[in-house]
Amino acid sequence: MSQRLYIDVHVVQTVPPANLNRDDQGNPKEAVYGGVRRSRVSSQAWKRATRQHFDEHAPEADRSIRTKRIANELTTRISHDNALEREDAGRIAAVLLAQLGLSQGKKAGDTAYLLFYGNAQLDAVAALVNGRAADLAALDDKALTEAVKDLPVAETFTTGHPVGVALFGRMVADIPKLNVDAAVQVAHALSTHETQLEFDYFTAVDDQNEKDETGAGMIGNIGFNSATLYRYATVGFAQLTGNLGGDTEAAFDALDRFVDSFARSVPTGYQNSFAHRTRPSLVAVVVRTDQPVNLVSAFEEPIAAEAGIQANSARRLAKEHITATQVWGDAPAYCAASHTFTTDEPHTKDTVETLAQAFGEPVTFADLRTNLRSRITAALQDQA
């Protein structure tokens, strides 16, 4: 597929006191933007949360995993499928994976880096020796290597990608044939306003204290902040379709699952301490045929610290989209938004009107996903 088609996803989401993504000091990550300090959640953190969300709702075989322990995982499969002792299965697994030329890690059996693959792909590698594993285990190392050298191990990892690998890609620096170009780009989430780092000083009392004992059994502190975040991601539909072997239906399903999981997922840092899970107040999708467009410039001037930061952020985003479209003259193929603002509230009435001007009348999140598929289909037909 050669068509240029990008699906931009814009999210405004308010998070209460939290530490979603900590830095090397254990405090929430930050960034300076527009001359002020902002709350930041790294793209890597939200991509992992997104991937975990859609894996939770997918069959086991359709899930992906990123690990250094691929040899252990393959050993388990070979041992289980062939009723083989783990030591014998481990020898076979090691020889099969040696064909890939993976650099070895410091710990025996581990690779030097995290390898991203699908469960179905590893199942397929294990299946290459099904029915003959016992005979292979009886061979010495040299004969075993010779016996499996022509099995298509590398080819198995370059086809049949799960949604996670198809979306986020795979980078193996020293083995280019295993690389998969990502179909998704995710920006670092930034607060739309200035934030201040705060600390929660906490104490814990020992439940077994004697009556005359005073003081805490534990004392500590956790850094946190609260913020209204602007989140952005873009999906290259042609790249996604290519990563899925040219299967357009699979690409539609992957896109739908990504939009759903990107909107609903939240990184889990310190979740037991803060119970910070919220839903976005705005999710907007824009289908473009020229290039992805991140609208973070809407917040280069930080939103003032006053009532309605969330509504003001959504309105500022909508205005930026309108202005950018008018200035550049590149109207998108489709845009739509699902949001929680209503005209019943005086302080959100202007926001609702501006959002409608930018993205059309609001729709439910379910309808946004359903309509996206039909509009992309129409855009592809127009390009054809």
Results as ranks from 00 to 15, higher is better:
Gly90Ile: 00
Arg91Ile: 00
Arg91Thr: 02
Ile92Met: 00
Ala93His: 04
Ala93Gly: 06
Ala93Trp: 02
Ala94Phe: 00
Ala94Asp: 07
Val95Thr: 10
Val95Ser: 05
Leu96Ile: 02
Leu96Val: 03
Leu96Thr: 01
Leu97His: 00
Leu97Ser: 01
Ala98Lys: 12
Ala98Gln: 05
Ala98Met: 01
Gln99Ser: 14
Gly101Pro: 01
Leu102Cys: 03
Ser103Val: 09
Gln104Lys: 15
Gly105Tyr: 03
Gly105Lys: 11
Gly105Glu: 01
Lys106Glu: 14
Lys106Pro: 00
Lys106Gly: 07
Lys107Trp: 05
Ala108Cys: 05
Ala108Glu: 15
Gly109Trp: 09
Gly109Ile: 03
Thr111Phe: 03
Thr111Tyr: 04
Thr111Ala: 03
Thr111Gln: 00
Ala112Arg: 12
Ala112Asn: 14
Tyr113Lys: 08
Tyr113Val: 08
Leu115Lys: 01
Tyr117Thr: 11
Gly118Cys: 06
Asn119Lys: 10
Asn119Ile: 12
Asn119Glu: 13
Ala120Val: 13
Ala120Lys: 13
Gln121Lys: 06
Leu122His: 09
Ala124Ser: 10
Ala124Ile: 01
Val125Lys: 02
Ala126Asn: 04
Ala127Val: 00
Ala127Gly: 05
Leu128Lys: 01
Leu128Arg: 03
Leu128Ser: 02
Val129Asn: 04
Asn130Arg: 14
Asn130Pro: 03
Asn130Gln: 14
Gly131Thr: 09
Arg132Asp: 09
Ala133Asn: 02
Ala133Val: 00
Ala134Val: 15
Ala134Ser: 14
Ala134Ile: 13
Asp135Ala: 15
Leu136Ile: 05
Leu136Glu: 05
Leu136Gln: 08
Ala137Met: 01
Leu139Cys: 06
Leu139Tyr: 03
Asp140Lys: 03
Asp141Asn: 11
Asp141Val: 14
Lys142Arg: 15
Lys142Gly: 09
Ala143Glu: 10
Leu144Met: 02
Leu144His: 06
Thr145Leu: 07
Glu146Thr: 11
Ala147Thr: 08
Val148Pro: 02
Lys149Leu: 07
Lys149His: 12
Lys149Met: 09
Asp150His: 13
Asp150Gly: 04
Leu151Gly: 01
Leu151Cys: 03
Val153Gly: 04
Glu155Met: 06
Glu155His: 12
Thr156Trp: 07
Thr156Glu: 05
Phe157Gly: 08
Phe157Lys: 06
Thr158Asn: 09
Thr158Asp: 11
Thr158Ser: 14
Thr159Ser: 14
Gly160Asn: 06
Gly160Pro: 00
His161Tyr: 11
His161Glu: 09
Gly164Pro: 04
Gly164Val: 01
Val165Asn: 11
Leu167Thr: 10
Leu167Gly: 08
Leu167Pro: 07
Phe168Val: 08
Phe168Tyr: 15
Gly169Phe: 10
Gly169Thr: 09
Arg170Thr: 11
Arg170Phe: 09
Met171Asn: 14
Met171Arg: 11
Val172Trp: 08
Val172Ser: 07
Val172Ala: 06
Val172Thr: 13
Ala173Ser: 15
Ala173Arg: 15
Asp174Phe: 11
Asp174Glu: 15
Ile175Pro: 10
Ile175Tyr: 04
Ile175Cys: 08
Pro176Leu: 11
Lys177Met: 15
Lys177Pro: 09
Lys177Ile: 12
Lys177Phe: 13
Leu178Cys: 10
Asn179Met: 13
Asp181Ala: 15
Asp181Trp: 05
Ala182Met: 06
Ala182Trp: 07
Ala182Lys: 11
Ala182Arg: 12
Ala183Asn: 14
